[in-house]
Amino acid sequence: MSLGTKIAWDDTVLPFQLDVSDMRGRVARLDGVLDGILKQHDYPEKVEALVAEMALLTALIGQTVSLRWKLSLQVQSKGPVRMIATDYYAPQQEGEPARIRAYASFDRDRLTDGAPFDQVGEGYFAIMIDQGEGTQPYQGITPLAGGSISACAEAYFAQSEQLPTRFSLSFGKSTEPGVGEHWRAGG
């Protein structure tokens, strides 16, 4: 893959529609944006994985909303990872990129050897949409369930929006010859 082709796909969300199947969706890839978010913090790898999953979901969902200002996703839990919060800021002008930020709060001493989602205990998954000054913010909440943050997002869409939604995500550290280890995500 040429450098130009690689750059064209980095940090991208592409919509698609399959008319015959009555299906639409998004394909996303986060590279530099995700790596930049995670490099700002000193998270253990399991917490990084949860933040990566949440940031990818935020990009996929944020791009689908006709948004004037901000979409936020949030996980609140009683587990070792107490909170994960992400924000998607809509582009200011046509053709400009959206912005994403993410943060996690956790108790390092309570982290276990289990899978990343095992670090999240009982709690809730929330989606908040704020269209800016003069509007009433929207908030939808569902319990944490299903074994992943993407399963929680699917449950939210099934319960709150009555919209069949599926996420297929992949995220982790990538290594390439001549390039240091870095985070990537796609869905």
Results as ranks from 00 to 15, higher is better:
107 D>I: 11
128 M>K: 10
68 R>W: 15
59 A>G: 10
104 A>T: 04
51 V>M: 04
30 L>Y: 11
31 D>K: 06
46 K>L: 14
69 W>C: 12
104 A>F: 11
36 G>D: 12
36 G>Y: 13
133 E>S: 13
134 G>H: 08
132 G>Y: 11
28 A>G: 15
77 S>L: 06
37 I>A: 10
108 R>D: 14
101 R>Q: 09
117 F>H: 04
55 A>C: 08
80 P>V: 00
109 D>H: 12
74 Q>G: 13
127 I>H: 06
93 Q>F: 12
50 L>F: 03
56 L>S: 04
124 Y>A: 05
133 E>F: 14
72 S>Y: 15
38 L>Q: 00
68 R>A: 13
106 F>E: 00
107 D>Y: 13
132 G>A: 11
84 I>N: 02
75 V>L: 04
73 L>K: 00
87 D>L: 07
83 M>E: 03
57 L>Q: 06
110 R>G: 04
128 M>C: 10
63 Q>F: 13
130 D>G: 13
137 P>R: 08
89 Y>G: 01
48 E>Y: 03
129 I>E: 06
49 A>Y: 05
107 D>T: 07
35 D>R: 05
123 G>V: 05
126 A>R: 01
40 Q>A: 14
135 T>I: 05
61 I>T: 01
133 E>R: 11
102 A>R: 07
112 T>Q: 10
115 A>C: 04
92 Q>G: 14
28 A>R: 02
43 Y>M: 08
61 I>V: 11
94 E>V: 08
112 T>K: 08
27 V>F: 15
27 V>E: 15
63 Q>C: 12
110 R>Y: 09
105 S>L: 13
133 E>M: 11
127 I>S: 06
56 L>D: 02
103 Y>M: 13
89 Y>W: 15
125 F>G: 00
71 L>S: 06
31 D>Q: 10
125 F>C: 03
128 M>Y: 11
80 P>M: 01
67 L>R: 06
54 M>C: 12
48 E>S: 09
84 I>R: 00
96 E>C: 08
120 V>A: 09
123 G>Q: 09
50 L>D: 00
88 Y>D: 02
83 M>K: 04
70 K>D: 11
58 T>L: 12
30 L>P: 02
87 D>V: 09
85 A>Q: 08
121 G>Q: 06
103 Y>W: 10
124 Y>E: 13
40 Q>T: 09
82 R>T: 03
107 D>G: 08
132 G>P: 14
101 R>T: 05
60 L>K: 00
50 L>M: 05
62 G>V: 04
62 G>H: 07
120 V>S: 06
120 V>F: 09
30 L>V: 02
